[in-house]
């Protein structure tokens, strides 16, 4: 299992459009990818799940990936987050 923590810096938080980008990226990998925020953990491949967390600016989220391509999955998701959401 691979895990990485990010801080959201985008003003709108994880809103609908960035969430779509995230979910589409996660969907490209075979590994199970999950995101947790505030003690709740959801599948990063499910758009309604991700949006239901209501992640605001300044939040700390952690992404975990488990499976054959977990390394790639974390890197891929990390790229999207760094480009659109935070660090």
């Amino acid at each position: 299992m691979k895990e990485q923590t990010f801080t959201i810096t985008a003003d709108t938080g994880v809103h609908a459009r960035p969430a779509t980008l995230l979910v589409n990226k996660a969907g490209q990998y075979e590994s199970d990818v999950e995101v947790s925020y505030n003690g709740k953990s959801v599948n990063l491949k499910s758009i309604m799940g991700v949006m239901s967390l209501g992640i605001p600016k300044g939040a700390e989220i952690s992404v975990t990936a488990t499976g054959g391509d977990e390394e790639d999955a974390i890197n891929g998701v990390s790229e999207v987050i760094k480009e659109h959401l935070g660090e």
Partner: peptide
């Protein structure tokens, strides 16, 4: 839905501060 999400994220942000 998008508006609802905005409201919720704003609220979360306020709670955090």
């Amino acid at each position: 839905f998008s508006e609802r999400l905005t409201t919720m994220i704003e609220q979360e942000k306020d709670d955090m501060e």
